[in-house]
Amino acid sequence: MSRFQVVSGKGGTGKTTVAAALALALATEGKRTLLVEVEGRQGIAQLFETEALPYEERKIAVSSGGGEVFALAIDAERALLDYLQMFYKLGSAGRALKKLGAIDFATTVAPGVRDVLLTGKACEAVRRKTKQGTFAYDYVVMDAPPTGRITRFLNVNDEVAGLAKFGPIHNQAQAVMRVLKSPETAVHMVTLLEEMPVQETADGVAELRAADLPVGKVIVNMVRPHLLDEEAVRSAAGDRRTDIAKALTTAGVSGAAKLVTPLLEQAADHAQRVELEREQRAALSGLDLPAYELPLLSEGVDLAGLYQLAKELRKQGNGS
């Protein structure tokens, strides 16, 4: 199992939720996982119902079996100042750079520096060792940018290494790239069983593969149960309307006659969706990647729901 798990996916597919559930699932039996976010949205804090995360690693959850989940919201500016301090002891020069607007330049305008800092910090956590020589975290899970940007985000170090042909930035970029392109890393794609997210997943996987980045699993999120198939709906819509009305009445539903049409309409929508989902499943299986499925939580995702999703992931093989 790769120690650096990157979770991407189209916007709206539940990346943050899946990343958090994965971090929980991996934190079993005394294992420590670090969940990092890189887009400054404080999505983790909202999910775990805690206050905004500061720029420090903080324990946010205990998993069943005694594992621990830590969280970190990586901030590019702080990461850069840290980095300057750590490697160059640039205490006052760092402040001067900040005053000049150089830090702002580096973290917002300069090509790629921001992404380098974000991936660099995450990779540092992956490689970090304790005094005893064991890894500080068993797993690092990243709530990463969406599918459309993930390859560029992860691959930016390659580009930077090309731009800065030597010097410390070059070396740093190459070190990060070594982690990202190794089996230590797995990039997962979260999708829904809908056309656009599946299409984006396919495109994203192709891009990752072209860049030699290790693709992990497809995680199909918010899967709804199939209650009726098309055939059932067809037969119901035919000559059985009266029977259905009767059955409704028998079951204790009042005013059954008026309900048959809207109920059948809903069933037709459902059948159409089942059919679309079948097509999308087929498209996903064409990617030749292992897939996990997570159910739609009808009450929305709260803390309890998160643990439920983690359990589901564990059952399907993660964290075991």
């Binding site: 059932a232 059955a247 079951a251 109920l263 009808s298």
Partner: peptide, 30 residues
């Protein structure tokens, strides 16, 4: 929560009216 075994029901070719109506109702509940 919808029962997962409901999927099995739909596989049967011969749906009884009760099964169908029950499916419609569960769908509506969802």
């Amino acid at each position: 929560v919808a029962h997962t075994d409901a999927v099995d029901h739909t596989d049967a070719i011969d749906h009884t009216t009760e099964q169908l109506t029950s499916g419609l109702l569960r769908l509506h509940a969802e």
